[in-house]
């Protein structure tokens, strides 16, 4: 299986084809509904986001709380389509990839193509299995949102399937 590592580049991502299975090692940032709302509000106001979106990967996930050793018990993907309405401004800021589960809108697939980004699928409902691939987790921003806060995760051999490739091909179409 193909392995990809941080730092990722859009030219590297452009080699991935829809339906391809890959193992990712590197950094991802968790963000789901409430964090997306905040991120896009900051962008709209011209303010700095808590992390530079350029060439980063956002993982649509709200993990179970950190355990005493700092790791998560369970951390799988949430439904990606809920983030569709927030996605275009993040892509415009250089976001390179997203990890989630389920379909994206035709509009988002178009933006993914426009910016040469990628949408990855992770195994929905396999949070225990996926949490074992997370090496470390650091609370980065919006701690007040609880499970919806932004965490910086280091992952190792995190299993992904290319859902929408940088040419806009969609595995579900």
């Amino acid at each position: 299986m193909k392995k990809i590592v941080s730092p990722i580049t859009k030219s590297g991502l452009s080699k991935l084809k829809c339906g391809e299975e890959v193992l990712f090692t590197g950094t991802v940032y968790t963000a789901r509904d409430a964090a997306h709302k905040k991120l896009t509000e900051l962008i709209a106001k011209g303010k700095k986001t808590p992390f530079d979106l350029k060439n980063t990967i956002i993982y649509y996930a709200g993990p179970t709380p950190q355990r005493p050793d700092g790791t998560f018990g369970s951390c799988g993907p949430t439904t990606a389509s809920r983030m569709d309405k927030f996605t275009p401004p993040l892509l415009a800021k250089g976001l390179a990839a997203m990890i989630g589960k389920g379909k994206r809108s035709v509009e988002v697939a178009g933006y993914i193509k426009k910016y040469g980004a990628v949408y990855f699928l992770a195994a929905g409902g396999a949070g225990a299995y996926l949490a074992k691939k997370i090496v470390s987790a650091t609370l980065l921003a919006f701690g007040e949102l609880g499970p919806e806060a932004i965490y910086r995760l280091k992952v190792e051999n995190f299993p992904l399937i290319v859902g929408i490739d940088s040419s806009g091909n969609d595995v579900y179409q």
Partner: peptide, 9 residues
Amino acid sequence: DRRPLCQDT
């Protein structure tokens, strides 16, 4: 490992 099956408990 006593982990929740899914993060959405």
